[in-house]
Design a protein around this nucleic acid. Structure first.
Length: 140
DNA sequence: GCCAACGTTGGC
DNA sequence: GCCAACGTTGGC
């Protein structure tokens, strides 16, 4: 999951009460669908800092509540049965010992299929396979 | 339903 | 600050 550190960083998450936060504000259907359908309780998630001096993976968090309506999204067309926008709750797990930069990720043959490094991908939430996950952590 | 214009994202 | 790559909007 991407976030611009200037608005919400891994440290901000760490300093939240209970080190948890709802991941609100996602207004993209593909990302919404991932929160609705894919992200399960207990899933581990990389925290990615975007749009900053050193874009890259900075930490790990965990899904502690599965997709539910984003109550901050006022949309007159949405009804409680079928909310337009959804969010999940996440909890801080740990900060990596160093930032694994986008530059590095792009250079690894093993990560050529990683959605993040595919050209032009601006999705704020992207899938990571078990193999990709393990490989990325091995680079820490 | 097409597609041009426009807005946003995000690396550089 | 620039600009490529998308997503969305809205006229037709």
């Amino acid at each position: 999951m991407k976030s611009e550190p200037e608005s919400f960083s891994i440290d901000d998450l760490k300093n939240r009460p209970n080190q948890t936060e709802h991941w609100d504000g996602v207004r993209n259907y593909q990302a919404r669908n991932m929160m609705r359908d894919e992200m399960k309780l207990g899933d581990q998630v990389f925290f990615y800092h975007s749009n900053c001096a050193e874009p890259g993976i900075v930490g790990i968090m965990e899904v502690i509540r599965e997709g539910y309506p984003d109550f901050l999204a006022f949309d007159p067309k949405s009804n409680p049965e079928k909310p337009t926008w959804m969010m999940v709750d996440v909890k801080y797990v740990r900060t990596l010992s160093r930032t694994i930069t986008l530059t590095e990720l792009k250079q690894k043959q093993e990560l050529s299929d990683l959605a993040l490094v595919r050209r032009g991908n601006r999705l704020s939430i992207m899938p990571v396979s078990k193999q990709q996950w393990d490989f990325i952590l091995s680079q820490e």
